[in-house]
């Protein structure tokens, strides 16, 4: 089975962020970058499937500037067999749909694949868009926010348990398909020292739009139907914290309930 895993490199989720003074975006100067956590769940699942079947290939695919090669190498160190990097300035400024279009073209070139994993969202833009749009460009089914997946015995379909409001939806999709990974799917492994050493020797191909047969109107800003006008710091909530202390539990509870009803008026 050939499995592709789309990974995005994002600022370390624990990092504090600054917005550029001109409002053009987040200031990435000096930030640590990591593989978006949800993509790691997808990669781990792909690796486990390959190990279970004891055959097949796992390919990590990423789009973005030069630094993205590091994320792809991390994927190789975890156990992926080869990597594909959509690396060209022409890809800059791609919105989620343009990104999905380019990834779909790359998967056609590097594939075909039986299964494609992506994170349910990237922790930077939080669009939750690329996975399903990718399936659309490939003309194949998808399942979203998957927390458990079971391949059928004949490997022609996969049953997915997806988190939905108030419960779980169960969907069976035919392969090839795109699945987007939700937390809870698995616990991703750490790369071993041996894995890190081996990753250096694995193939990392780079694709340009021309390699993929994509024109300037199909990638980057020209290929995007949405554009970011401004990025600003989030509004700061003004709080005057009222401290309730040194009271017996019953008295504290009484006081809090009174404040919530009479002052905050939320109950």
């Amino acid at each position: 089975m050939k499995i592709a895993v789309c990974i995005k490199q994002v600022p370390d989720t624990s990092a504090a962020l600054k917005v550029k003074p001109d409002g053009s975006g987040v200031d990435t100067e000096g930030l640590e970058f990591v593989i978006s956590p949800y993509d790691e769940y997808g990669l781990e699942e792909a690796l486990r499937t390959k190990e279970k079947l004891a055959t097949g290939e796992v390919v990590v695919v990423g789009l973005g500037p030069e630094r993205v090669a590091k994320a792809l190498r991390s994927g190789l160190a975890m156990g992926a067999d080869r990597a594909v990097h959509l690396a060209d300035a022409a890809f800059d400024g791609s919105d989620a749909i343009a990104t999905a279009r380019a990834l779909a073209a790359a998967l056609k070139k590097a594939g075909p694949f039986d299964l494609v994993w992506a994170g349910k969202e990237a922790t930077d833009d939080g669009m939750s868009t690329v996975g399903a749009a990718l399936a659309e460009f490939l003309g194949i089914p998808h399942a979203s926010e998957v927390k458990k997946a079971e391949l059928s015995a004949d490997k022609t379909s996969i049953t997915c348990w997806s988190e939905v409001e108030g419960g779980t939806a169960v969907v069976e999709v035919k392969l090839p398909a795109v699945l987007t990974a939700q937390k809870g799917l698995n616990e991703p492994r750490y790369a071993s020292l041996k894995g890190i050493m081996m990753a250096k020797k694995k193939e990392l191909a780079t694709y340009t739009p021309a390699d993929l047969g994509l024109s300037a109107e199909q990638v980057g800003k020209g290929g995007s139907r949405s554009e970011v006008l401004k990025v600003e710091p989030p509004p700061k909530k003004q709080t005057n914290t009222k401290l309730i202390k040194d009271l017996e539990p019953d008295a504290a509870a009484k006081e809090l309930v009174r404040l919530l009803r009479e002052e905050a008026k939320v109950i």
């Binding site: 919105d95 989620a96 749909i97 999905a100 279009r101 349910k120 939080g126 669009m127 939750s128 868009t129 690329v130 996975g131 399903a132 749009a133 399936a135 659309e136 460009f137 998808h142 979203s144 926010e145 997806s162 988190e163 939905v164 409001e165 939806a169 995007s224 139907r225 949405s226």
Partner: peptide
């Protein structure tokens, strides 16, 4: 913005070749 919208709106945006702003 629900699990359902996250599931199909990207497909719709891609098919209509238009922009999607989630959440």
């Amino acid at each position: 913005a629900s699990s359902q919208a996250r599931d199909f709106a990207p497909r719709l945006a891609a098919r209509l070749d238009t922009g999607l702003l989630p959440d």
